[in-house]
Amino acid sequence: MAEQVPEKVAGEVAISVTGLTKIFGTRKVVDGFDMQVGKGAIYGFLGPNGSGKTTTIRMMCGLLTPDGGAGQCLGLDIVRDSREIKKRVGYMTQKFSLYEDLTIAENLDFTARMFGMKNRKALVAEAVRDLGLEGRAGQLAGTLSGGWKQRLALAACMIHSPDLLLLDEPTAGVDPKARRDFWDEIRKLAARGVTVLVSTHYMDEAVQCDHIAYIAYGKKLIDGAARDIPGQIGLSTYVVTGPDLSELEARLEAEDGTGQVIRFGAELHVSGTDKAALDALAEVERARGTHEWVAKRAGLEEAFIYLMAGAKDNFMLEPVS
């Protein structure tokens, strides 16, 4: 995993929302959402499918009107000034949403026109060059591979040099190499002072973010710097190695009081919020002498699997009508 990027000093604020709520029909898709994003930060949105990530992003860039709450984005009111916000925000949708029957250059040109850019020709040429697609500017966007589509989409939503970039699961279905290239791009942009808000499913992407918020069923469960999140939950972990891990896994899961047991290749990660109980369990297991139990600092992965398990309970308690 990549080095963790130190959190930006909380100076200027790019986004600040409080109590953001959206109701579709009778269902609260986003429920009392508060968030602060510092300027120039990479802010990660994590959460299971249908947890309200997309809806939240759409409310912040003025695509949806919130049913409750207020906030400002780049110093503009998210309800009143949505048109002004749109001019300064780049929004990359989850699904490829450029025109497949237009060429790469035509798509970029169309977007540039939409934002009323003066020097369109130069901008488009520059974007094509940056993409490394000089010879293929006349190629139809629909014929690009998944990774190239994502990069083109990113180039399109950057064409008007926005101050804020909203990326909705930008790397879903893209191969690891293309994903890494994509994130290099994102970090370059952040270094230039662009604020990036990105939603993702991938843990290796989450750790690239300066700050993470975990959402489930429209509620923010936790937020903080990536490395602080396991500590915030208060999760302790033991790494277990040895023979017949599957058998041990089954036995531990059947036992009451054991936290979560996750298999990572040739290791079992046993985690729980009750450190004393976990230590006692490790003591008992060590005494058997079959497996090696080593305490470790809980990682993001354990933390999010823990949160997701909790969210499932949440779902059962509050059935979505």
Binding site: C61, L63, R83, K86, K87, V89, Y91, T93, K95, F96, S97, L98, Y99, E100, T111, M114, F115, G116, A156, C157
Partner: peptide, 13 residues
């Protein structure tokens, strides 16, 4: 249907 409307309305159009 193709999702292009989403990008379109994210612009000041």
């Amino acid at each position: 249907e193709k999702g292009t409307m989403e990008s379109l309305i994210a612009t000041p159009v």
